[in-house]
């Protein structure tokens, strides 16, 4: 590759400096947060010696633990459902033509572009109007809390999953499925033995994205959660608004670690994608 068109001199230096700046900007706050979470000081931003007290406080607090377990439950449940529905949606859009396909396609973009706050309002009013009706109809004994939050998270996650899986499907030749059917596979077997193994990385990527978004959400959850029910982000958000304490540092770092784990997993999934 020719480098004759690349910037030289001050422009090149500025590009390098900007590169370093961006990474500093991204990581310095995170690193500082981690450091202060081990600081033995009542003050969140001052160093007072090393301690693990805040972490033990966090794990001793039944509220925090309850919120964490709620978050995890909701993340897992909503991810499973949205992965199933999102993958089916992706398949239908990439491999079939049917009536109302264009409307469906457009509808799938809605959750992605609608601002959190609007969606929160939509969900709040929807459950206000319909939750009792749904409850009466299906007799599920639904209460605001786990179900309302999960349903809301599924509502936005279907779209994100389907976008990721669709990208993977679009990159996969339909030839492969035709070859499978030519080789005596039924439609289901063609999916099971050819399509599915091919799109697993996409499904995994979609699942991780869904889980991340579910664990990230504050506004929508806050709007639809019932009394006494809260997720970790909403719990933390509430604490921050009451006043910043070092305990929040510890909780935040814990959430950070979970995020990082998901990132690592997603990178692994991408690797598989490249080799696949």
């Amino acid at each position: 590759m020719s480098t004759s068109v690349e910037p030289r001199g001050w422009a090149k230096a500025a590009l390098h400096a900007n590169g370093w700046f961006v990474y500093m900007f991204f990581y310095a706050p995170i690193v500082l947060l981690v450091i202060y979470s081990f600081s033995n000081s009542r003050n969140v931003g001052t160093w007072g010696g090393f301690t693990l007290d805040w972490y033990s406080d966090f794990f001793d607090s039944s509220n925090a633990r309850g919120a964490l377990s709620n978050s995890v439950k909701i993340a897992i449940f909503s991810t499973i459902i949205s992965v199933a529905l999102g993958t089916m949606a992706a398949l239908s859009l990439e491999r079939f033509t049917f009536r109302g396909k264009k409307v469906f396609d457009a509808l799938l973009y809605l959750p992605i572009i609608i601002p959190d706050v609007t969606m929160a309002v939509m969900m709040l009013l929807f459950f206000g109007e319909f939750f009792d009706v749904l409850d009466a109809l299906f007799g599920l004994g639904l209460r605001k809390g786990f179900w309302s939050i999960s349903i809301s998270h599924i509502a936005f996650n279907i779209s994100f999953v389907s976008v990721v899986v669709r990208a993977r499907l679009a990159g996969m030749d339909t030839d492969l499925e035709e070859a499978a059917i030519d080789l005596y596979a039924s439609r289901w077997k063609a999916f099971r033995y050819v399509t599915f193994p091919q799109i697993v990385p996409g499904i995994a990527g979609g699942a991780l994205l869904a889980m991340t978004l579910s664990l990230d959400d504050v506004v929508i959850t806050q709007f639809v959660s019932g009394p006494g029910w809260t997720t970790l982000p909403v719990y933390v958000f509430g604490l921050i608004r009451k006043g910043v304490t070092p305990l929040i540092n510890a909780v935040s770092v814990t959430m950070l670690v979970v995020s990082m784990l998901l990132v690592v997993l997603s990178i692994v999934a991408q690797r598989v994608r490249r080799n696949g």
């Binding site: 030749d173 030839d175 035709e178 070859a179 059917i181 030519d182």
Partner: peptide, 15 residues
């Protein structure tokens, strides 16, 4: 899958 013919696809379509 019900026909006694098989195909060699363009670009082979190997799994």
């Amino acid at each position: 899958d019900k026909r006694p013919v098989n195909t060699v696809f363009q670009n082979y379509a190997l799994f």
